[in-house]
Computed example of a mutant assay.
Amino acid sequence: MDVRLSREVAAIAPVHSSTAVNAPIPLGSRPVRLSDGRYHVEGEGQARLELAPRDRLVVSVTVPATSETLELTHNPRKGELAMQFGDMTRPARMLASKISFGSSGQISLELVCRAGPFTICTSRRARLASLTLHVLNFPDFIGRDDFILDVGGGTERRLGRTVMKSTEWAIEMQAVPDTKRLVGG
């Protein structure tokens, strides 16, 4: 097999990463709007992807302790809420798995997705120019499109890379420098 390693490939830097195998991955903070159909409250939310003991999206939300918030968090449907996270066009159906009352006039909620997709853009006219997707726990690999990454200090590292193409799209998969540590291999 004739393998020529390129030094001109731009390494894809992970947008989100974890510190250890199966550690939660922080996904970002956004303003949040919660509703149960009758009451509405706004606060600040932090999303994270939890990988153990099972994969799930969790959003930690802090809202002011008002009478509306108390009605909202103690609704008879056992915490089912519609949540808009940042600029989401469609609310996600969430369940409140934990509610804490702070001494500073705040209520903290742990929300998990009830079911279905967590959709951010629903426009059929929107066309993707590019998309970065993280394939979690994907094993380290070596292929014919590998490249050399300069990791500094005069050290270079071979990273796996493969490209799948069609007439209208291309999918590029790259190993990240931490693959062996994060996958546990």
Score class of each variant (00 low, 15 high):
Arg48Thr: 01
Val9Thr: 13
Asp140Phe: 11
Val58Asn: 04
Gly160Ala: 13
Thr122Asn: 11
Val59Trp: 02
Glu80Phe: 04
Met164Ser: 11
Ile171Arg: 10
Gly185Trp: 07
Val41Asp: 02
Ser166Met: 04
Cys121Pro: 01
Val59Arg: 03
Met164Phe: 14
Phe101Asn: 00
Leu70Lys: 05
Gly185Asp: 14
Val151Met: 02
Arg127Thr: 06
Asn75Phe: 02
Arg7Glu: 15
Gly102Thr: 07
Glu44Pro: 00
Phe147Ile: 04
Ser97Arg: 08
Ala13Val: 11
Leu133Tyr: 15
Lys78Asn: 09
Lys180Met: 12
Arg157Thr: 06
Lys78His: 10
Val135Cys: 10
Gly37Cys: 03
Asp2Glu: 14
Ala52Glu: 10
Thr73Ser: 01
Arg90Thr: 09
Asp150Leu: 00
Phe101Trp: 05
Ser29Cys: 07
Arg33Cys: 06
Cys121Met: 15
Ala11Thr: 06
Pro14Glu: 14
Cys121Gln: 15
Val63Glu: 01
Val9Phe: 05
Thr89Asp: 10
Gln84Asp: 07
Thr73Asp: 02
Pro14Lys: 12
Phe147Trp: 06
Ile142Leu: 11
Leu109Trp: 01
Thr167Met: 08
Ile148Tyr: 09
Val112Thr: 14
Asp178Thr: 13
Arg125Thr: 08
Ala65Trp: 03
Pro26Ser: 15
Phe118Ile: 11
Phe147Lys: 05
Thr167Cys: 03
Leu72Asn: 02
Pro64Phe: 05
Glu80Arg: 12
Ala47Val: 01
Gly86Ala: 10
Leu57Ser: 04
Pro26Ala: 15
